[in-house]
Amino acid sequence: MISARELVPGIVAGHKRAIARGLTWIERDHDRGRALVHLLFPRAGGAHIVGVTGAPGVGKSTLVNRLTLTLRSQGRRVGILAVDPSSPFSGGAILGDRIRMQESVMDDGVFMRSLATRGHLGGLSRATFGAVTLLAAAGFDVILIETVGAGQSEVEVMQLAHTTLVVLAPGLGDEIQAIKAGILEIGDAFVVNKADREGADQTARAIRGMLSLSRRDVAWVPPVVKTVAEQGEGIEELVDAVNRHRQYLDESGQWAERRGALALHLIELAMGDWTHRAIAQAQRNVDWSAVMEDVLSGGADVEELARQLLLQALKGRNHEP
């Protein structure tokens, strides 16, 4: 059995087999996956991480395929992570984003992996964070992350990405949905895809109008780009917007800040994991009937009890179950 340290050279050299195996370790939450991310994190600072989010079926995968082709023509290596939802009933998933990416993924300069959410909320999977670190360390210049097409609340991607693309399609109500879902606030650029359909100009205008009212960062006005991903129209302009945003982050000093913010977010996520494990452990080990008795009789304060159980479960544990 090979160790995390032994896998690192293959990953750094960009060997597909090593990358694929490393991603599997990260997803299956092996000790080795954790060790790998730790080893690779210092090497992972160079990649431009780009999130692609938007409602189901707006054309995110088709767009990722086109973006990849254009980025490749500019000589850049592209890593792709595409997240689809796990079934809350069976825990299984159908990962179908690869269907639309067939043209771009058969290329040594491209690596694409499908991920299932496995219960993680927010549009990503828990493993996405480690997976991005691995792909960045493997030398991919741009990493495209397609979130779950939930249509709302998939805002976690902005914690991970330098640049977040919000994809919409023309049609009555989409703009309203955008405001409701809070995605106006997360987009560094907006894509009106399916611009071959009626109403694209109107949608683009509506987005621009709303942006002018609710801008968070006055120095960067999110561009609104119309595309027909299926035909490859508007892609150069979109890639240009992505590149300009990177340049803007660099020049404004935000590029470096983002990495610090990401490290912080990773720590927060890991604290959440430890808490969940502690809860699971308490659920297994505590004599609940006694506890229940205590609470019902008014003897125990629920808040204090919870604090003590959590501390107990965490104490003396330095590894995962």
Partner: peptide, 27 residues
Amino acid sequence: RDAGMEVVYTGLHQTPEQIVDAVLQED
């Protein structure tokens, strides 16, 4: 999927090269 597995589906008309490349990347 209903049996709890994760299924990567790649659509119609795959070449042997595409299939094996997908097996490799998706592990």
